[in-house]
Design a binder for these strands. Structure first.
Length: 447
DNA sequence: AGCACA
């Protein structure tokens, strides 16, 4: 009960320990990088990274106290500070004598995440946006949202604990990208823990809960309008009638937008059944058909207003078509029916929506050089390598991040493994893995 | 930029 602490929080001189405390580490510093850093001074027997509120602290434990002392004294007198990925890291003896790697209940989670959305406008975050965000890591089975004293919360159910954990690791503490939110909204931060639930009970599709595994689940009466359509948005706003077919018009088409390009872009959100392209009013338009309305809604939300290429080129404008099933007479470079057999089948995602057919895209024909992945790479005209990163992901699963930049291009990308990305501050968190990119990643990692 | 984990 004493309010006077006898120990200062940080002592100026720490007594030596074979455990060193590191801080100011770059984002997502790996265990390997820590071992690399300590190796010249002795045997690193244990590490712990992603420590602290910013996850930028770590511990390394040497086999022997002298090795820790060697490292500290080396950097105490060195003109070159200790660095990881070019970032200065600060070292000191830990106030503990060994690293405790407790796998606590918070670490061994289940397949359901408890997500708290923080921020003044948190309750304005739509369930569709949450779905989009979490779908970047794998198939989202169900979402329920509710308000508690803790604020606006959601339970997000994945197939398995691994997927849930990857989503948690990537998203905990992050802000929802502003481009996914209505313009006036302030930052919305995700705080994620594991839920004890394993299977959520969702009775209706509504603005508060969704079951993406059951296309036949009734829509909540509150979300149905007089025409019997599911047309009430989150905040009760009227939406245009949704459809499984999107009408895309492409503005500022400096670069060729081909059928394949459209297929790749729209396949990121679900299997594309049919595409028909045509010219209208001197511009290019296309109809893109998904098997279900939900997928079209997610795709529309994610892609609307975005540019296929950096620099404001090939900006997409999407609306719902009144069609529900396109009639494709012939497969050519302007129209295609991907549901007809004898195309490559490579959709490892379980067919959760029942009638959902397998996606029919294959990897691009040519592998593209790694150099084209760098962040300042500009797509060149008539060059399909603008999408090379997607092909690369598909074929290897290498983690790339897409960077929606100032122009909100979807496809400014960089190789996370070899580059800090296009942000200036090495400590800054990278942009969201764009849904387009990560949905493919999740397709890739399932088998 | 300053010590994990319940």
């Amino acid at each position: 009960m004493s309010s006077v602490s006898s120990q200062p929080q940080f002592r100026l001189t720490q007594p030596p320990s074979k455990v060193l405390h590191l801080r100011n580490l770059p984002w997502e510093c790996t265990e390997e990088e820590l071992v690399e850093l300590g190796k010249p001074f002795g045997k690193v027997v244990n590490t712990k990274c992603n420590v602290g509120p910013n996850r930028n602290q770590a511990f390394i434990e040497f086999a022997d106290l002298n090795q820790a002392i060697a490292m500290i004294s080396y950097y105490a007198s060195s003109s070159e500070p200790a660095q990881v990925r070019g970032k200065t890291v600060y070292l000191q003896y830990s106030n503990r004598q060994e690293i405790v790697n407790n796998k606590t209940t918070a670490d061994v989670g289940g397949n359901v995440l408890l997500v708290t959305i923080e921020g003044a406008d948190a309750r304005l975050v739509s369930i569709d946006v949450l779905h989009l965000v979490f779908s970047a890591f794998g198939f989202v089975h169900k979402i329920t949202t509710f308000e508690k004293t803790a604020g606006f919360q959601a339970l997000v159910q994945f197939s398995d604990a691994e997927t849930a954990s990857s989503a948690k690791n990537a998203l905990d503490g992050r802000n929802i990208p502003s481009y996914l939110l209505p313009e006036h909204l302030g930052p919305c931060t995700l705080r994620i823990t594991y839920s004890a639930h394993t299977d959520l009970s969702v009775k209706f599709q509504s603005h508060r809960s969704r079951d993406y595994t059951n296309a036949n689940l009734p829509v909540a009466p509150s979300a149905i309008d007089a025409n019997g359509m599911f047309s009430v948005g989150l905040d009760g706003k009227k939406l245009e009638p949704e459809s499984n077919v999107l009408l895309a018009s492409i503005e500022n088409m400096q670069y060729a937008v081909t059928l394949d390009v459209l297929h790749m872009v729209f396949s990121s959100f679900g299997p594309v059944q049919k595409i028909a392209m045509f010219d209208k009013n001197g511009g290019l338009q296309a109809l893109i058909q998904y098997p279900d309305v939900q997928t079209a809604v997610v795709a529309k939300e994610a892609l609307e207003g975005h540019c296929i290429y950096d620099g404001g080129f090939c900006k997409l404008h999407l609306s719902y078509s009144r069609h529900s099933d396109l009639s494709i007479k012939v497969n050519n470079d302007r129209s295609r029916d991907y549901t007809i057999p004898n195309t490559v089948m490579m959709n490892p995602q379980p067919s959760i929506l029942g009638q959902q057919p397998a996606a029919t895209h294959g990897p691009p024909a040519h592998p593209y050089p790694r150099s084209s992945f760098c962040s300042n790479n500009r797509a060149s005209s008539d060059d399909a390598s603008a999408f090379c990163w997607m092909g690369h992901r598909w074929s290897t699963g290498t983690p790339f991040y897409a960077c929606p930049d100032e122009s909100q291009s979807l496809f400014a990308t960089w190789n996370h493994a070899t580059s800090n990305g296009p942000w200036n501050d090495a400590d800054a968190k990278p942009w969201w893995p764009a849904a387009a990119c990560s949905c493919n990643a999740s397709l890739q990692t399932r088998s």
